[in-house]
Design a protein around this nucleic acid. Sequence first.
DNA 1: TATAAAAACAGTAATTGTTATTATTTTTAA
DNA 2: TTAAAAATAATAACAATTACTGTTTTTATA
Lengths: 137, 137
Amino acid sequence: MNYSRQREAIVNFLRSAKVKHPSADIVYVNVRKSFPNISLGTVYRNLNLLAQKGEISKVKLPSDADRFDHNTEPHFHIICENCGQIEDVGSGLVNIDVMSIERLSGFSVDSGRIVLKGLCPECRKKLSPTKKKEEKK
Amino acid sequence: MNYSRQREAIVNFLRSAKVKHPSADIVYVNVRKSFPNISLGTVYRNLNLLAQKGEISKVKLPSDADRFDHNTEPHFHIICENCGQIEDVGSGLVNIDVMSIERLSGFSVDSGRIVLKGLCPECRKKLSPTKKKEEKK
DNA sequence: TATAAAAACAGTAATTGTTATTATTTTTAA
DNA sequence: TTAAAAATAATAACAATTACTGTTTTTATA
């Protein structure tokens, strides 16, 4: 599936783990080091294509740019409300009572993706005792 | 806090429960029935203001417009991947192992809001045996 | 290999949900 | 009753993303 050199550079960057859950824009600026003419549209197209093929996964966030993850194993994420940094959360740490939800709501539940919110270690330190961070609108 | 007539109309529409978890746009077209000149900006400003004051709550979704909820009690949501309809999910039905997550990730966890994905009863019927719905990009 | 069809590309324009700006109107309070 | 403050309508700006277009690259096949 890795025909084009641009696509290969994109997937390689993701797997290199230089940046952990990069947005398309971060991928763009990095891949540009080896492909100065690559277009942002190409980055988006390939990231989506790779996600669709299951070679990477896409992490959609509320009010923030999508992130991309070379780890396709099932797991959840937590995002720092202050700086936007994302960390993995093992899928065993969130328990969803699928049966009850389906019974009560009538929905079928796809428990695949969950994004928790919180504060990363660095931002905890920065913001901790003095000022309580204001709620994000 | 309900000074302006427009703001009152907005909060009244939300509480009327004619539509369950409307987006700003849905609020806009409905409030326009009584205030034909109201501006979309006014709707957004007031919805955000009301959410900030805690009179309503804002439900942020990945890759979809924010929704607004007159119910400010703590609870989660599930969104239909096919039609976007949202339903409440009691907060007892999702269990987050906050202690372990905090220990393993170093993050502090704000377990406030979670949005699950699934299929609402209507879309289940529509899509069920024949065609398996395609993954949303 | 040559070459035609298919795929991918760069660059740019368009879309969508939302926020910011601005000049005007409404509300509040002295 | 009138000046200051707040809110408004209308519109522009914005950010993330997708769509479009004409060109280049890749692939497959003769």
